[in-house]
Design a protein around this nucleic acid. Structure first.
Lengths: 200, 200
DNA sequence: CAGTAGATAGCACGTACGTGCTATATCATC
DNA sequence: GATGATATAGCACGTACGTGCTATCTACTG
């Protein structure tokens, strides 16, 4: 997973893994039986880790705006804590398998839809609870939150500069507070205009 | 470029290209002399096309908010028009070469910084002209615009559904109008809460 | 028609890969 | 200490790749 998150599943070959581990190709091969299964099990394990590190803690918060913010923060924290050294494992996979072919592509695509759908659901729940304005387009807000998180992951891993995580946090706050009912009702919210404490 | 934008530079091999063209490997090889040069010239040509299709028309607008919006729209249009069949060529490259090694990585990284820096400059110009609130953090707004455009490109090419371009447009409008001075001064702006005309 | 530059083919070589096979270690359990 | 499972090594095969070489074919120029 570490190798794949940095260099992509394409670089996760039997030979490369053997070399990395200092054993023979046969030694690796015997454990998986095929390259496909190596990839499959790697992705499955990464999914388990994502569930443990992001979904579980993120969805533990009470329903509504809390849960939405909690999930976003859980994702950013997961990137910030370098759970995978190459940033979000699935962002890497998605970019690598965006061409429409193969089983990995299909799975990753449905994961992506699931993630975006989850965000949308949480937005809708917050709307139902009256914490977000009823006029908000849930799909649109989910898009914007996803964009902020993805770009934070992207730039952080690309430039090895965790300060982009903070950009993501700010963008999420701005997007949510722009859609909140009665701005200012919740304490500690940022104003409409994104003003940073201080640059750098 | 078409092949690389869809499947990545890694799939753009001498042999694959020869097969795609229906000629021998030697036939392709003689034109470039090495795989490295094939890649180099492919990226260079893509850069020229990006300049012609995005930068040139985008920066033609008068300085200030007009130019900022024009550049964002030029990018979305470039994705929408399928200038490259695999979406934005450089988004693909960036994802593929995010691991820190090699010449392509370095070039692509500096392209990325240039793009983000350009957006930031345009925001600052709009601030100077009084069209955006002086309290906006230019880097932050550039981040959010970039995020919206990138996600639009991403989801559009992944799901082959151009409706995500419209999500991007809306996100850009929201971000900019949230940072504008005297909201409503410019005609045709959307309100603070993102309300879509109708879903789907 | 002769000459020449450019494009392409064919062939050979070394490398890395996935995969199947057999042989040998290592180690827990009886 | 014998048994058996597990892990690993070694070897062979076919495929795809980049690269260098020579030969041929095409098309333009004189």
């Amino acid at each position: 997973m570490r190798l794949a998150s940095v260099e992509g599943l394409g670089s996760l070959t039997i030979g490369r893994l053997a070399q990395e581990l200092g054993i023979s190709k046969s030694g690796v091969y015997a454990h998986f039986g095929s390259k496909t299964r190596l990839h499959q099990e790697t992705v499955d394990e990464a999914r388990r880790i994502f569930a443990r590190e992001v979904l579980e803690p993120g969805l533990a918060a009470p329903e509504g705006l809390d849960r939405l913010e909690s999930l976003c923060e859980a994702f950013l924290s997961y990137v910030e804590r370098n759970v995978f050294p190459g940033g979000c494992f699935f962002a890497q996979l998605l970019a690598e398998f965006d061409a429409p072919s193969g089983r990995v592509h299909d799975e990753v695509l449905s994961d992506q839809q699931g993630w975006l759908g989850l965000l949308e659901q949480l937005v809708e729940a917050a709307v139902r609870l009256g914490e977000l304005d009823g006029r908000v387009d849930a799909g649109q807000l989910a898009f914007e939150l996803h964009a902020a998180m993805d770009m934070a992951n992207y730039l952080t891993t690309l430039h090895r500069d965790p300060s982009f995580i903070e950009r993501g946090r700010t963008a999420i706050r701005t997007a949510i507070s722009g859609a909140a009912t009665d701005p200012g009702a919740r304490a500690g919210e940022s104003p409409d205009v994104p003003v940073e404490p201080a640059e750098g």
